[in-house]
Design a protein around this nucleic acid. Structure first.
Lengths: 189, 189
DNA sequence: ACTATAGCGGAGGTACCCCTCCGTTTCTAG
DNA sequence: CTAGAAACGGAGGGGTACCTCCGCTATAGT
């Protein structure tokens, strides 16, 4: 298998060796993250190259397919989300769960690709989803064991519910939070 | 104003006079409905014409802009949804509300454009949204007055919550229903 | 400083899509 | 049946995106 630089998520493409190439690589990753967030996963690759200030050829050399670029961007995002599960570990069960879900929403609100990831079935998405579930499931189970969360639903149900609410269009953030709270009331016991 | 053939929603384009033209008009509408449902509102107009078995010129003669075609399709859908509000009027308050929301989900599940409509701000979308709200709000208020629904949220909150859950990807319909039920439990009192 | 070479960028071929225009076909009223 | 009008459809011009290829440039080791 490939080297796993940090967490459990394998990087699909490798960072180049030469200094100028590394600069371009990073600029592309940043531009891709922003552009995917703004326009969804169908964003034009030529625009991403334009934003990064590099030629289209450079983009294709680093990321031969759209999928490669996509993986590179979102493995990073998912990794951060998983790390967030540790940050909430000290809170009481229910608070820990909701805090993590709010974090999930924060990422996903501007980065709908994570949500789309819940459905695609490529290897990459499977891996990312497993990592997310591995991070979140313990929080949910802890809340269930503490008698704070319904036991007749699965973590998958919960995460998809939150995903859906995140993707929905709301008038403002206040409404989004209000609606999320209502829905979570349906989970709380 | 234009004639309003049936409900309160004005038709933006008019059905042609000649028999062959009417056939094409209807075929286009059907093809557009299916294609929009499958591929979203960005679907290729040329493919719609292809599916309808007519030339692209015919599409443009009947619907000069994408918006015109879109309106023709979705006014029809929204009209049906509004009519559904009458069908549930005899049920007890809470059941009436959830029955209508389920109907809303059924339409919207394959027709995400209605959901997108919740956000766009063109005149057409505004009209459609008002019609939907006019149909659904009484059901919600009745449930609130009967002490069956929380009074600290607005109908808009509820509808967007349901929209979000509808748009989310689920493994199967059973999960979608399960999750919707959980979320509605947060609204029920 | 020098040079081998990794890396660069964008021109250009292919494939769609949008929309217009007009010669041809089809309908229908008389 | 016929002729005028209504409707048809698809070719074609303009645009954008994808992806490859290769002559040029910047880097890093000596």
């Amino acid at each position: 298998m490939t080297q796993t630089p940090r967490g459990g998520l394998a990087a699909a493409v490798k960072r180049p060796q030469r200094a100028d190439a590394r600069r371009n690589f990073d600029a592309l990753l940043t531009a891709a993250r922003d552009t995917f967030a703004e326009q969804g996963t169908d964003a034009s690759l030529e625009e991403i190259a334009r934003r990064a200030g590099v030629g289209i050829g450079t983009l294709y050399r680093n990321f031969p397919t759209r999928q490669d670029l996509f993986e590179a961007v979102y493995f990073g995002e998912v990794e951060e989300l998983c790390a967030a599960a540790d940050d909430v570990a000290d809170l009481p069960p229910w608070d820990a769960l909701t805090a993590w879900l709010e974090r999930f929403v924060q990422y996903a609100a501007t980065k709908r690709a994570i949500i789309e990831a819940l459905n695609r079935d490529s290897e990459m998405f499977t891996t990312a989803r497993e990592a997310m579930y591995a991070a979140g499931t313990p929080l949910f189970e802890r809340a269930q064991q503490a008698g704070e969360a319904r036991t007749d639903i699965a973590f998958d149900d919960l995460l998809r519910m939150v995903s859906g609410l995140t993707a929905a269009g709301f008038v403002d953030d206040a409404q989004r939070e209000r609606v999320l709270k209502i829905a979570l009331d349906g989970v709380h016991t």
